[in-house]
Design a protein around this nucleic acid. Structure first.
Length: 493
RNA sequence: GACAAGGUGGCUGAAAGGUUAAGGCAGCGGACUGCAACUCCGCUUUUUAUGAGUUCGAAUCUCAUCCUUGUCUCCA
């Protein structure tokens, strides 16, 4: 029997602001859409937290036995800029500055994004559609919205008529904003005089002569509005009603609100059953911003090539750090926090290795494996509560250490359950990876073994100076010697 | 200004009305060690931003104040 049949998964729905029992449209199948990155620069660390959260969601759904179609788009058509370059596409702007083709920028940063997701052990989505690959469908959707009378054309651009939509539907259903609020609190921007109302948003923008990225349409040579691609691609690949739609908290308004308006206009139904929003990531208790230098790239964490963190951290540690917080909480990223996570992560991994060599006894004492397993599922079923899951995992760690010291026993049956459950949660669900025991090449190993032997002899002669010299100099090369009862081992950092 | 999410120990971060407020890190003590490091065991800390209210009972509900973060038309 599939695990989902015996697990009551609850998901916090941003739409209802409450936890709801998860019931997919089609039994056993889940359609999930997550707003992907804009590939006009390196992927932001905050994006990584969001995508990592949904990677975990994806993984848990798979673990429960659902057949999941996970769609995460690539925004490569670019966005309008809001400042002096009104009407200019971000990607086009970047391209001009760097004197390369727009699609060259897109290609470069798409590759960068995929490199990062691979290094951080993300499962690839089922479909990763691009906005530029769906211009035709976007034009078709604009036509449909116009036919329904919810959009109008001005000077080659098409805008969504928010006020009209709000007469029969609820614009603000997700964000809690009302049209009245919007009217009173909208900045007046230059160059948007084409709109009937400042709340209206663009479905199609006519490109000016400087704009490089452009496509023909019934209205003008131009480009689609930003919100449109997600409506188009989610309905194309997942249908009119999708189970889960995710994204960062900052996309709730206007992006997701506009998506609802567009899709609802076309289909007449609520397009998304469960809206999930991942919270923001702070860096040293401050928001991340390139301008202030409070900024770090996902890549720089791994290499240690940055001025924010004391050292390099592995992707596994970063993942563990992220999973120690709930996805709906603001998380504060810092060197201290990562150092703490690294220790905890190593402790967990060490215990897992230990478990491999544990031998079963006739009975289990001091640990109820089945009850513990249930607690792990309960945590995940409660809106993907990974921090509580991890707290539970450490209960098992403690028990494993007792087993290692022969202070506790475990039956064969329980041992099998413990192993499969830990493997499932640690590797399949949390997506943590066993650090490669990078003992280096055989040659390095031989050299280090030789030094260990020399040190052993020195120690036997009570030549502490030589013994410590070998230890310290190896340590400064990143090779740590570990003296144990059964001799000395080493690890490469 | 409006809307949204928050403010929990030295740090990080769970718990969302009910006996002792998870877990990780740090700290302290111990085992191991030539001394350390690594590893393991044990222990310690918070009364939950502030003030008031509701309740038999509140971190959890209400109100006010202060503070943080996000959004406000195209940045996850």
């Amino acid at each position: 029997m599939e695990l989902y049949k015996e697990n009551q998964l609850k998901i916090y729905n941003s739409l209802s602001k409450s936890k709801e029992l998860f019931v997919p449209v089609t039994e056993g199948r889940v359609g999930m859409y997550v707003c992907g990155p804009t590939v006009y620069s390196n992927v932001h660390l905050g994006n990584i937290r969001t995508f990592m959260s949904f990677d975990m969601v994806f993984r848990y759904l798979l673990h429960l036995g659902y057949k999941v179609r996970y769609v995460r788009n690539i925004t490569d058509a670019g966005h309008l800029e809001n400042d002096a370059d009104e009407g200019e596409d971000r990607i086009a702007k970047k391209a001009r500055l760097e004197e390369i083709e727009p699609m060259e920028v897109v290609q470069r940063y798409t590759v960068d994004f995929h490199n990062v997701t691979t290094k951080y052990n993300f499962l690839p989505p089922s479909i990763e559609p691009t906005a530029t690959g769906h211009i035709v469908e976007q034009i078709e959707m604009i036509k449909e919205i116009m036919e329904k009378g919810m959009a109008y054309e001005v000077n080659g651009s098409v805008y969504f008529d928010v006020l009209k939509y709000n007469e029969s539907s609820n614009y603000g259903i997700l964000s809690g904003r009302t049209i009245e609020d919007a009217i009173h609190n909208t900045r007046v921007l230059d160059g948007q005089s084409d709109k009937k109302n400042p709340q209206d948003f663009a479905l199609w923008k006519k490109a000016d002569e400087r704009h490089i990225m452009r496509w023909p349409s019934p209205w003008s040579d131009g480009f689609p509005g930003w919100h449109l691609e997600c409506s188009v691609m989610s309905s194309k690949y997942l249908g009119e009603q999708i189970d889960i739609h995710g994204g960062g908290m900052d996309l709730k308004f206007p992006h997701h609100e506009c998506e609802i308006a567009q899709s609802h206009t076309c289909s007449g139904v609520q397009p998304v059953n469960y809206w999930m929003h991942a919270n923001m990531l702070l860096l040293n208790s401050q928001k991340m911003a390139k301008s202030t230098g409070n900024y770090i790239l996902p890549e720089e964490i791994l290499t240690g090539d940055n001025s924010i963190l004391p050292k390099a951290f592995s992707a596994g540690v970063v993942r563990f750090f992220n999973m120690q917080a709930h996805y709906r909480s603001i998380l504060d990223f810092s060197g201290d926090a990562l150092l703490a996570s690294e220790k905890g992560y190593n402790k967990l991994m060490e215990a897992l290795k230990m478990l491999k060599s544990v031998e079963a006894s006739k009975t289990t004492n001091d640990f109820d494996v089945l009850a513990w397993k249930q607690k792990c599922y309960d945590a995940m079923n409660d809106d993907f509560n990974t921090p509580v899951l991890i707290a539970n995992l450490f209960e098992a760690v403690k028990f494993i250490n007792l087993l290692k010291d022969k202070k506790a026993q475990i039956s064969e049956e329980d041992l099998a359950v413990l192993r499969t459950t830990l493997d499932a949660f640690v590797f399949d669900v949390l997506g943590l990876v066993e650090e490669e025991t990078q003992q280096g090449s055989n040659k390095l190993e031989g050299v280090v073994e030789m030094l260990i032997q020399m040190r052993k002899e020195a120690r036997e002669n009570k030549d502490w100076a030589l013994s410590d010299q070998i230890r310290d100099e190896l340590a400064s090369l990143g090779i740590q010697l570990k003296d144990g009862r059964e001799g000395t081992t080493f690890s490469v950092n």
